[in-house]
Every structure is written in C-alpha cells, then in structure tokens.
Design a protein around this nucleic acid. Structure first.
Lengths: 137, 137
DNA sequence: CGGCTAGATGCGAACCATTTGCATTTAAAA
DNA sequence: TTTTAAATGCAAATGGTTCGCATCTAGCCG
C-alpha cells in the first residue's frame, strides 16, 4: 500500500468500504484523526467546514457501521466518536472532574463464557471507567 | 433486624437513608423487587399506581444516589433501573434480539491500576455485554 | 392528636440530543 | 458527459429527561 496524504488515504478507505468519498466524510475522518480523545458531535461540528448536524449524525452512524469510527457513551447525555482506523480495540478511563480521558487496554471480553450464561455468542460489550485524575485530585 | 413485610422494611430503609417513606417510593421499591431484569422507566410507570413521569425520574435519581437502586444504560436510548438492596455489584449480558438479560459476575474493577494511568483513584465503571441468547440463536 | 415545615408529587412546559422527510447536490459508474 | 444512487441541507418532528411552580404529605414538635 502506497503512502498517500491522509485525505487521499481516507478517500481510498471509504471507497473500499462502499461509501462515497465525499469531501464532508473525508473531512470528518481527518478531523477525528486529530483528536486525542473521543469527541462529541457538537464539538466535531465546530471543527469541520459546514456539516449540518443531521448530516453529521448520519455520516457518523454510517462510518461506525463500516468500522471506521467508534461510538462511545461516556456520559449518558451525548455520544462521542473516535477514529477506529489503525487503532486497536480499547476502553477508556474518564476523569469526572475535568473530562480527561485515557485509553486502557484492560478488556473483559475473554473472561466471559457465553454458554454458561445461556448465550450462544457474545457480540460486543461496553466498558468505561470513571475516576479522578492526578491533576484534579 | 426483625423480619418485616417488604413495604415496612423498605419504609425503614428509606428513613435510614434520610428519605421520606412515601407510598410512592415504597411502591417503587416493591415494584422493582419483583422484576427479574432492569426495567425501563416507561415500563415501571405502568406497574406502579399513578406516579407521574417526572416524579418517577426524580424518585429514581434520589434512590440511586442513596444506593437503593442502580441505573443501567443497556441501550443508549433509555435508562433502566434495578433494585440494589441486598444485591451485590454485578454486570449484565443482554440479548440484542429478544432483550433477555442475565447477570454476570465478571468485573474488571481490580484489573486496573489508577496510578499507572495518571489517575489518583477510580470511582466507578460501566460494563455491559451484548450477545445472542440460545433461544434466539 | 393538630399544626408546621421540608421534602415529595403532579402537571405542564421546556430542553436537548437525535431522527426523519423531502428537495437538492454530488460522487461514481457507464 | 449523462445517469443514478447516495449524501447533504434545512426544517420539522421525536422522545427521553428535566424544570418551575403550586399543591400535598411524612416526620416532627408541642
């Protein structure tokens, strides 16, 4: 795979996934790539050119279904998104005081035995930790 | 502690926690006690006499803060509640096809080292598994 | 036991994130 | 370039949850 500039790389990935490589969606991925933490849709809206909220919602949902971004519910109010391309599965710990988020590699996925629970398979899970970071302590 | 009928026992617990033992709140706890799975506020509303939705929300929030009930966000749409009295900390696995829920004892709480993440302490976490139960498979 | 007061309730309106309908634009294929 | 399905923008609707405020009521005191 050749080395391309991010926008072209994302365009290629979008087409690979059967999505149209629109400027808006490429811009979304580029913007998400710059974020260190999962970002709310509202914030994201201020970082990209002019995407209407409804378009943002639709685009993010489509990208999430294709595995290009991940949706995270840290607080039950609004969803946050992070880029998934090139990033391994992980969870987060959130400072409830300042909002700082860190990735954590701990994952309970393999600790559960579907059969023993009357389940034929486990398809997914959500895990978020909450705490107080050292700066806020 | 003497053996009382549930409503009287809950009344006593409410007073212990500094909450007024109103019929509505006692009824809420009794209704929650009967549920095998976390129940949505809407469903709960149909099971108790006449509590207005806003009262339901306020009551559940108050009871949750006192540790008498637990709020669970299985789907990102609506919150669910389960009784916490006499029930140890646990998580759930949800069948995404029929909604069946089972308790799971797996808990990642002790697997995380706050200090190594730049956190002074971990105050909580959320964990839910999703899958397909044997009946739906 | 009757009155007093903070907390609880009901009702309606307000909020806010998210969704949807529809007409218009645009990327991708022919 | 023409064609077409998908994507976008705008406005309106949805739906869970919250708030303001007037009215009740449990718990307390005399």
């Amino acid at each position: 795979m050749k080395r391309l500039k991010p926008s072209d790389r994302y365009a290629a990935i979008l087409r690979e996934k059967g999505e149209k490589a629109t400027k808006a969606r490429i811009g979304l991925l580029v913007a998400l790539e710059r974020e260190r933490f999962p970002i709310s849709i509202k914030e994201l809206g201020t970082k990209v050119k002019a995407p209407d909220p409804s378009t943002l919602y639709r685009s993010l949902k489509a990208l999430a279904e294709k595995g290009l971004v991940r949706e995270i519910m840290t607080d039950k109010k609004e969803a946050r998104y992070e880029i998934a391309i090139g990033r391994a599965h992980h969870h987060h710990v959130v400072c409830t005081s300042c909002g700082l988020m860190k990735d954590v590699r701990v994952c309970p996925e393999k600790a559960i035995a579907p059969a023993s629970l009357g389940f034929s398979k486990i398809t997914g899970h959500t895990l978020e930790f909450f705490g107080i970071c050292k700066s806020c302590a």
